[in-house]
Simulated scan of single mutants.
Amino acid sequence: MTFKTIISQFNEGITTITINRPSKLNALNKETIKELHYAFKIAEEDHETLVIIVTGSGDKAFVAGADISEFANFNEEKGAKLAAKGQELLFDFIQNLSTPVIAAVNGFALGGGLEMAIACHFRVASENAKMGLPEVSLGVIPGYGGTQRLPQLVGKGRAMEMILTGGMINAEQALAYGLVNHVVASDNLLSFCDGIANKIKKNSPKAIAEAIRAINAGFKTGVNGYKKEIKAFGRCFATEDFKEGTSAFLEKRKANFTGK
């Protein structure tokens, strides 16, 4: 598939998706959201893709928010539909992928950009990264899951402060908050993420998918995460990966997982 606003590249089990609108600081518009959806969908369905990394082009921005010009004149109904469609197509979609997604946050991650990063399974930031949800300064609130996912990551108080002030935090603050897992030099960001991805891809794709589902279950209202874990644990025993993993351990050799 040919994309206009993103670049998708595959290399040795890792698909790297780059938002490529540098003149707009990689801001999300309708076209970009649709293309990201398809790129993630293609990677998820590709059995050779074991890890996905998402980043922004250039060194200034991961994604510096949404393209405000597209919704500045919306009414209440259109605004609600915008949020619902965006969550369905991209933000919830990313969170629920069975393929691990690492956000390589280079530069500004604001508004919808930060919301996309926190929908990913975890985040690594460059030293120059700045993160925030400035929507209240525009008379609106985060609409792509920011009011729900941010408190889960940094706690209610810190999320309240970030959202209500509309201010930005730097990479070191994000690390202290637990918003990102690592902070690295800008030049090393993608290679560092590749290093983590290479560790992940040695493991069972089936087990990884079940682990993601079980972890996500614990954050869903009305869902008993422990019961979901028990069922997921049991399903692993029916996979070829389990047989291979246990055999390799007992035979003192490296496992060769097939994702079956």
Results as ranks from 00 to 15, higher is better:
Glu45Asp: 13
Glu229Phe: 15
Ile230Lys: 01
His121Ile: 03
Gly157Ile: 02
Thr99Ile: 13
Leu153Tyr: 04
Lys254Glu: 08
Ala211Asp: 03
Ile19Ser: 08
Ile230Trp: 02
Leu179His: 00
Ala39Lys: 00
Lys60Ser: 07
Lys206Cys: 00
His182Gly: 02
Lys60Met: 00
Leu110Ala: 01
Ser137His: 14
Leu190Trp: 10
Leu190Arg: 09
Glu31Ala: 04
Leu110Pro: 07
Val124Met: 06
Ser126His: 12
Gly166Lys: 00
Phe91Tyr: 13
Met116Arg: 05
Ile102Cys: 06
Ile141Trp: 13
Phe10Ile: 08
Asp59Ser: 15
Leu89Glu: 11
Thr165Gly: 07
Glu244Met: 06
Asp241Trp: 02
Ala255Lys: 12
Leu164Phe: 15
Val140Glu: 05
Ile17Gly: 00
Glu45Ser: 14
Glu127Met: 09
Leu150Asn: 09
His182Tyr: 04
Asp194Ile: 14
Glu35Tyr: 09
Lys78Tyr: 14
Leu153Met: 15
Gly56Thr: 10
Ile163Asn: 00
Asn224Trp: 04
Leu28Ala: 08
Gly178Tyr: 05
Ala214Gly: 01
Glu88Gly: 07
Phe40Tyr: 05
Ala185Gly: 12
Thr16Pro: 02
Asn75Lys: 11
Pro142Ser: 14
Asn11Arg: 13
Asn29Arg: 10
Phe192Met: 04
Ala119Ser: 15
Cys120Glu: 10
Ala255Leu: 09
Thr165His: 12
Lys24Arg: 15
Asp187His: 15
Ile196Ala: 01
Lys30Cys: 06
Ala27Val: 12
Ala197Val: 09
Cys193Ile: 03
Lys60Trp: 08
Gly178Phe: 11
Gln95Tyr: 13
Lys4Ala: 04
Glu12Gly: 09
Leu114Pro: 00
Asn216Ala: 14
Thr99Glu: 08
Leu97Pro: 07
Phe62His: 09
Lys202Asn: 11
Gly143Trp: 02
Asn188Leu: 08
Thr165Met: 10
Thr99His: 08
Gly86Trp: 03
Met1His: 13
Glu31Phe: 03
Ile208Ala: 05
Val183Cys: 06
Gly65Val: 02
Ser186Phe: 02
Ala117Trp: 01
Thr239Asn: 00
Phe10Asp: 12
Gly178Thr: 12
Leu110Ile: 03
Phe219Thr: 14
Glu35Pro: 03
Leu97Thr: 07
Leu25Trp: 05
Ile6Trp: 00
Ala64Ser: 13
Asn29Ser: 04
Asn203Gly: 11
Leu179Glu: 10
Gln9Gly: 11
Lys30Thr: 02
Lys130Met: 15
Ala211Ser: 13
Gly166Ser: 11
Lys201Ala: 04
Gln152Phe: 14
Glu210Ser: 06
Gly222Pro: 11
Tyr144Gln: 05
Ala27Met: 08
Lys220Ala: 10
Val184Pro: 06
Asn96Gly: 07
Leu179Thr: 09
Lys254Pro: 03
Leu175Ala: 12
Glu244Cys: 00
Leu133Asn: 03
Arg235Lys: 14
Gly113Gln: 05
Phe242Tyr: 03
Tyr38Leu: 15
Phe233Cys: 01
Lys220Gly: 04
Leu175Thr: 11
Tyr177Asp: 08
Glu127Leu: 13
Leu175Ser: 06
Thr147Gln: 15
